[in-house]
Design a protein around this nucleic acid. Structure first.
Lengths: 118, 118
DNA sequence: CTTATGTATTGACGTATTTGAATATGTCAA
DNA sequence: TTGACATATTCAAATACGTCAATACATAAG
């Protein structure tokens, strides 16, 4: 995943409504009443078309899967894709999040003491 | 860190130029020639004012620190802040990235088999 | 003081994004 | 068929964003 596609994924996550939606959804296929679009709109106190809009963006980024049942559409998270983005961001920044959250040591990251004005 | 501030941090990261800038910068204070603004502009083949603009956004989000020396301004990453955002994103999504990149088990994430239309 | 260099800011421009209102589509119940 | 409900789409308005050109500011050199 290069910087361009990573930035597109991050853009899809970089909205408070979409983060709240993701926090409300389960990680597995789950067609309980609470996970359809109207219930999300109610929980988040926002118009249903607005939630549909944000779900469309999350679908395009493959951060959610969904299933239509009768009149309802139930959504859940694509946990694999979400964790992939977290880890890819870490890689892109040379972090290894699975270990310590610390940057990977870079031997050339020393102070250049010979700068003319010091 | 709530969804609003997390989304602001993610927005600051959600740009390919800014991701490339961060990938080029060291993790420690480092005033080598390669880490000033003109050199970044040259490496990324973009006008210097554009790089300054993106650096300002990264500064506002506290993703970079910098030091002015003579006519140059040297930048480096705020590794603590960057890893904090990665981990906070994981927390917000109920992932524990330090362990497995897998979602934290939620006992209520079962399929609702009693849906009227199944 | 004048000139050259490095960086930041400003303003203009085109594009993208967010939101709300209205509406369309699809499904079920009566 | 009619009405009610759930969801998606479209459109318009407002806002935000990325890029570029011009310029301002700061520092250093001569």
């Amino acid at each position: 995943m290069d910087e361009n596609s990573l930035s597109l994924s991050l853009k899809a996550l970089a909205d408070p409504v979409r983060l709240r939606i993701l926090a409300l959804l389960p990680d597995e296929a789950n067609c309980e009443h609470g996970n359809n679009v109207s219930q999300l709109a109610m929980k988040l106190d926002m118009p249903q078309p607005s939630i549909s809009h944000h779900l469309k963006i999350l679908r395009s980024a493959e951060f959610v899967d969904y299933q239509k049942m009768c009149r309802d559409v139930f959504y859940w998270r694509n946990a694999q894709k979400l964790s992939e983005v977290c880890l890819t961001l870490g890689e892109s920044l040379n972090f290894d999040l699975r270990e310590s959250g610390k940057p990977i040591a870079k031997p050339d990251a020393r102070i250049e003491e010979q700068h003319p004005s010091i």
